[in-house]
Design a protein around this nucleic acid. Structure first.
Lengths: 91, 91
DNA sequence: AAAATAAATCGAAATTATTCGATTTATCGA
DNA sequence: TCGATAAATCGAATAATTTCGATTTATTTT
């Protein structure tokens, strides 16, 4: 796991909307439709799309196309990796 | 641990200089003099001071004054808290 | 007390992120 | 095929962050 990736993950986690998105997906058994996320938040659809892109670019979410919808899924592996990385500093 | 604090931590961890600072302190047995950090990096002293402030504001580092020097110490408790928070998303 | 040193603060410039509305792309249903 | 729907992309405006040099504050040394 290189520095650039660590940085992308940390940055992606540092925005309140993106945190809300992750928390909602987690509560919804780890996956959620894009439209459902858009309904949940009060910001513009294009803004949400932008936030989702950042989460996908950081590998925190996986996007799966399903017809004209997109399913966003929590990528546990990346959370695990990042958590492990942070653990180094507390030991 | 409220959302605002989580956000401050995540943001503080999302900068390459701040990561370098944390890593260097960790390697140095968990603490380091401010001057040593300044010597290590090639950016302006005021910029480093600003980065250190953000790390202290996020409770990731503790600042301890020692004469005219300042010792920065890794705050393991905060790393632990944050790591635990992130673990929720991977389980 | 004066000079020197370490670190913080201030104000401004440059860079990067966020946000929006409008448009585009892709897929589905009639 | 045509219209409708879902999501991504684009370009521009606004907001936040990073960075610097200059100054200030606090402490130590001479």
């Amino acid at each position: 796991m290189d520095v650039k990736k660590i940085e992308r993950i940390a940055k992606a986690l540092g925005d309140p909307y993106r945190l809300k998105i992750i928390e909602a997906i987690k509560k919804n058994d780890g996956w959620m439709q894009c439209g459902c996320i858009t309904d949940m938040l009060t910001i513009a659809q294009s803004t949400i799309s932008h936030h989702l892109k950042q989460l996908v670019d950081a590998d925190l979410l996986i996007a799966e196309k399903d017809g004209r919808n997109v399913r966003y899924i929590i990528n546990k592996a990346t959370f695990d990796e990042y958590t492990k990385f942070l653990t180094l500093f507390a030991n």
